[in-house]
Design a protein around this nucleic acid. Structure first.
Lengths: 169, 169
DNA sequence: GCAGGATGCTTTAAGTTTAATCTATTTAGA
DNA sequence: TCTAAATAGATTAAACTTAAAGCATCCTGC
């Protein structure tokens, strides 16, 4: 079973950069690599231990934070995926009885999606394991480094958002 | 056209975290958000201006760094995707004359993939634009912050790799 | 040499994700 | 009011991705 490409890490996307590659580019590649490494781990473990997928987990985690439910387009925006994607995932989870769709009384176009009791129970268990994995992965950084990284990423996020807004016209 | 979910950025994956969410988790969510924001931008622009996709660009960029060519499994490892995926993308690019497969004289199972002249020309143009986008996105950080972020991500990467190695047994 | 296992690549089927389009509903303005 | 534009959600086709299985070739230890 080929589960994790590049797990060895001896050579990866960043290797072989030529001397004239610029700093910003290398920073971006490293950011991408870190995310994909962690994401790959989480994805594999969710599949092995809970027979679920990352997008399903992500969607449920959004709902868990919003017990009053979220509209489809709110889910789409928060998860940063397209609407069609959300439709498909909600379809699955609803068929399994983990979430439910309710009509929005104020807007007949809209649906409000929320966790069912079973969904809440299921998610609680996954969330505990998930947090353990993440904590373990990031445990090598000191509290100070955590804070600094968090701060720097806030800046990156802010500039990325500004960049998008600019292009959106 | 629904091109960029969450482009507004007023509310995203990180919003609504409950007070007892832990630091590591929030750090991971922010890392993920940053990556997806930038990745979404790059993806959209590659499509609009060059009618290509991120995986195609990624594959070509690996080859550009290795003029002597790379074997299929080296591409797979560096791009962190499965081998079957690489086969498909190379098939496409080869059909368009941007890359070519050459038999490896030392190993008759292996193939060496490299950019064609046309591929080099095509990639050079895309790479220039791509670097501009990335530089612009990360321009808000000082040289010092760049270096610090790079260093911290190196630590994250290292721990993530160690974590994977541990689970691989 | 020569089994038996490992490696390199491809294929297949199933699932995911996207971009674009469609229908229904709401909102805003003449 | 009434029409046009905007919005919410679902749907579709195409692209991407994966896991698993298959075929060919290489390598190791007897």
């Amino acid at each position: 079973m080929l589960r994790q490409a590049a797990a060895s890490g001896r050579e990866d996307r960043e290797s072989g950069s030529r001397a004239d590659d610029h700093r910003a580019l290398r920073l971006w590649l490293r950011l991408l690599t870190c995310t994909q490494l962690i994401e790959g781990q989480v994805r594999g473990r969710l599949r092995e231990r809970f027979a679920t997928t990352l997008p399903r987990f992500d969607l449920m985690s959004q709902l868990e934070r919003h017990p009053q439910g979220l509209k489809m387009n709110e889910l789409s925006r928060r998860m940063m995926v397209t609407g069609g994607n959300v439709t498909g995932i909600v379809d699955q989870l609803a068929a399994e009885g983990l979430v439910e769709r309710q009509a929005d009384p104020a807007d007949r176009r809209a649906l409000r999606v929320r966790l069912t009791r079973a969904g809440e129970r299921e998610f609680a268990e996954m969330a505990r394991a998930h947090e353990e994995w993440i904590v373990a992965t990031l445990a090598g950084l000191s509290r100070r480094e955590h804070a600094e990284l968090f701060r720097l990423l806030a800046k990156v996020k802010q500039h990325a958002l500004a960049n998008i807004a600019k292009g959106a016209t």
